[in-house]
Design a protein around this nucleic acid. Structure first.
Lengths: 203, 203
DNA sequence: CGCACAATTGAACATTGTTCAATATAAAAA
DNA sequence: TTTTTATATTGAACAATGTTCAATTGTGCG
């Protein structure tokens, strides 16, 4: 069959990406299937390879879409979360992962093959989340701190990420942890306090 | 074909488990194949289902084997790592993951299906690692601390785990983090210091 | 209108996980 | 020792995947 005119190339790319993102949210990375995406979109599996070049590229784009939604979730939490912005950040980080565990997990389960770097747009989309956190961390640290704030912020993110992935993967359930968000927030506060942060009072 | 006498049932189970563990270390969870395990062991794929009941059960046993090796690695690092035992713990945690990234990742990539809990032996094997850390954390905290030490230790593990998984997954490489072990150790020290731990001097 | 281009199809191929009928061997019973 | 029973083992059948690409045909261009 020849070209169809149901969609422009841009529309088709968006359709496959949106349909793929929807499927990922339903079944998760291990059960994700390119054939099912194509079928739901009303195309054939070969079209995915024509539009994206590879299944990996579609998966990378889906994960970038997830990052974008996650950053928006975080911004929303900061807007509505009250004065303790660090607590809002931690709740926002967890909130998305707990609300969308299959999408969240897929970010870390799918690995972009070596030699196939992410596009600049993908890298920028993924860095947005880190940028938000850096900004908030810088705001609560003393202005004259000697700390590499960007690096410190990334480390705090990694710390919260560890708690988060234990929850999503079920490890914490096995270990009888009942308030992982609280634990994560305590660790973040302890590190911030150590560097002179004027955050909400410790409990 | 009927029964063979090349191996006792116990030997066969150990052969399939050891061969599977070897394969996991080589190819990682996404490319793991039960057929290849059986082939390397000199049996047919159906034998795996006869011995383990399901591929998931073999995978769970492989991951328990990895936990056991990881706990041994940690103990070894504590024995040789010098006076700063907290630093040894963090280096030990990372060391195994960096030396055996595919085995380490498989622990978190493979999910035991719901309704199929782990055996007591598996749970015990997996808890050994946590037990080591709890012990060391308890040793550096004041004897009269009000902290729930087990919970606190788990939270520190989660924090280090976050840093570790960023390294193994390549996220930190994307973010130009050059000393993730150092970052993780700093966060652990900050939290321990906050609760009155007499650990090695902060830099 | 005719031609060129390439999007699209979906089967071919190689592989997977899982099941299970057929087979043959070890173990148990006579 | 022989016969019978139990079951471990096989590997094809089945349904599915990812990836490729020859054949088809619709769109775009001159």
């Amino acid at each position: 069959m020849g070209r169809r005119s149901d969609h422009t190339p841009g529309e088709l790319r968006e359709l496959l990406l949106a349909t793929g993102h929807q499927l990922m949210g339903e079944v998760g990375y291990p059960r994700f299937s390119g054939r099912e995406v194509a079928k739901r979109a009303g195309y054939s599996v070969g079209t995915i390879y024509n539009v994206f070049g590879s299944l990996d590229a579609l998966l990378a784009a889906i994960n970038t879409r997830t990052f974008t939604q996650w950053a928006a979730w975080l911004r929303q939490e900061l807007e509505t979360g009250g004065e303790d912005r660090i607590a809002s950040l931690v709740r926002g980080y967890f909130g998305f992962a707990l609300a969308r565990p299959l999408l969240w997990s897929a970010i870390y389960e799918h690995k972009v093959p070596e030699g196939e770097g992410l596009s600049d747009a993908d890298l920028e989309g993924r860095a947005a989340l880190t940028g938000i956190v850096e900004q908030e961390v810088a705001a609560v640290l003393p202005p004259d701190t000697a700390l590499d704030v960007a690096r410190f912020a990334r480390s705090l993110i990694a710390s919260v990420h560890g708690h988060c992935s234990y929850v999503v993967s079920g490890s914490f359930a096995l270990l009888d942890e009942t308030d992982p968000v609280g634990s994560a927030l305590e660790r973040v506060r302890e590190s911030l306090a150590h560097h002179g942060a004027k955050s909400a009072p410790m409990l």
